[in-house]
Structures are given as C-alpha cells and as structure tokens.
C-alpha cells in the first residue's frame, strides 16, 4: 500500500475522458490511502475497522485457498438463474395482462397488494418450503425481480402512440404484428429500466435469502466472518458483492444498448 504515484499525474492528462478516468482511479487510491492512514494513526481496533492492507491480505489468502470461489459461484448462480426466471415471468405476465385487458383488471389489485409486501419478509417461508439448498434462494431472487419487470412491462406497453397504431391498422396488421413491430419496441426502453432495477434487487435477494438459511454462498460467509469477529473477511466479501453488482449492472446496460440500438443512435446525434 505504498506509491503515491497517482498524485504525480500531469495536469494535462486530466483533461478529457481519459483524464476523467484517471481522476476516478486517483480518488479511489487516495481514499484507500487515507483509510489506511486513519486506521493506523488513530489506532482503531481491527474488530471495528480493518486496514486496507489487512483486507488485501485476507483477500489473497482466501482466493488462494479456494475458499471464496465456491461461495462466490453459488451466489452468482442463484442470482443469475433467479433473475432470468423472475424477469422472464414478469415480462411474460406483463404481456399477457396488457394483451388481455380484462384479465389484467381482475389481477391488478392482487399484484399491487403483493408488490407492496417486502419480499425479503417472505424468505423464511420460502426456505421452509424449498429447503436450505440453492432452490429456495432462486425462488426468493425470482420473486424479488419479478415485480419491477412486470410493472415496467405493463407501463411500457400501455404507452401507445396513436399514429403508429393507425399506421399498423392501415397496413391491416394482425394483433401479433402490431405487437412485434410497434408495441414491444416502443415499450423496450421502459422494460429495460425495470431490468436495471431488478438486477440490483437480485443480488440483495440472494444475500438476504442466504442470511435466512443456507449452507453455502457469500451471505453465509458474511455471517461466519461476523461470528469469528473477522472484520477484514467481511470487507473482502463486501468488495466481491460490489463487484458482482457492478458487473451485473454493466451486463444489463450492455444488453440494453444492443437491443435498443435506435435510442442510442438518437442520443449520439443530440
């Protein structure tokens, strides 16, 4: 944890995009150094606040021993499978409800009632039903990601550009063609906004479900580290979680740019 190299960056390099990136890295390094200095300087107990150097050591040791990989893999797997199931079901039900208006009106009060319920509170019940294995975590993640995707699919599909619908009617388009060529692409940006929210919730859901009852996963490791008063290990896991969350978010955004290429195009012109 030496090297104030970041301080000696020439000012000219700080202009423009690259400079901005360098500045962001510089701020991070600065914060880490300040953290190290403060913990050392004020002699704070390692039980309360671990030094960045201790965290780095714990991380390297854990990764070498292979301890973290298995748990990290389990958590990511639960999150990804749960997200895919929850998002697919949310999207599918959103389409069904918006296409069959009467069914939607009948179901809507129930959906609102379930949506206002904090899903993590249901986690103990789900663990009771599905056990301590990976299945119960997938169900919790699916449940927590289902609603933002459902609600955003519904609201996206409810945006109807009358002129575009008239155009499809003039072309004698079928219901399916109107959906595929106009309604779904019109709704896509709103649906992706829902996916962006859902992917963050997916990680929360996986960790909380692991807190409630699990044998493996990063949530279990956090609890173990807490029991062992191993603050450095807890920070290591938090770093992993931040990185998983960030990658998932970037992944969805990457997909969004691919799928909604026309929005990107419009943006870059302005």
């Amino acid at each position: 944890m030496t090297g104030p190299a970041s301080v000696s960056v020439p000012a000219a390099a700080l202009s423009g995009r690259n400079g901005e990136r360098l500045a962001i890295v510089g701020i991070l390094l600065g914060l880490i150094i300040a953290w190290e200095v403060v913990v050392r300087g004020f002699d704070i107990s390692p039980l309360i606040f671990a030094k960045p150097s201790d965290i780095a050591v714990a991380m390297v040791r854990g990764l070498r021993s292979g301890l973290y990989w298995e748990h990290l893999g389990i958590t990511v797997l639960q999150m990804v499978i749960g997200f895919m199931i929850g998002a697919s079901l949310g999207f599918a039900l959103g389409v069904v409800i918006s296409e069959f208006g009467r069914l939607g009106r009948l179901m809507f009060p129930y959906l609102v009632a379930i949506q206002s319920l904090p899903k993590v509170a249901v986690a103990p019940l789900i663990i009771l039903w599905f056990g301590f294995g990976i299945e119960s975590k997938i169900v919790v993640v699916a449940l927590i990601t289902f609603f933002p995707v459902l609600i955003n699919t519904l609201s996206g599909l409810s945006i109807v550009d009358a002129a575009r619908i008239d155009l499809m009617r003039i072309m004698l388009a079928s219901r399916w063609q109107t959906f595929a060529y106009v309604r779904l692409p019109s709704a896509a940006p709103t649906i992706f906004a829902g996916l962006n929210v859902a992917v963050v919730l997916a990680l929360t859901g996986a960790i909380v479900a692991e807190f409630v009852g699990a044998q493996r996963g990063l949530g279990v490791l956090v609890l173990q580290a807490q029991a062992n008063l191993d603050t450095a290990a807890m920070f290591v896991i938090l770093i992993f979680l931040a990185m998983i969350g960030l990658s998932a978010n970037l992944g969805v955004r990457w997909l969004e740019r691919r799928v909604i290429y026309w929005a990107q195009r419009r943006e870059s012109e302005q």
Partner: peptide
C-alpha cells in the same frame, strides 16, 4: 382499412 387504399399522415410516422 383496405389494402388498395393507402394513407399518409401529417407526421411521416417512421418507426425509429
């Protein structure tokens, strides 16, 4: 609407 009748709107209504 009929297939042998075309229509042009005030806005061109191009799908982006």
């Amino acid at each position: 609407p009929r297939s042998d009748v075309g229509m042009i709107f005030q806005d061109a209504v191009m799908l982006p």
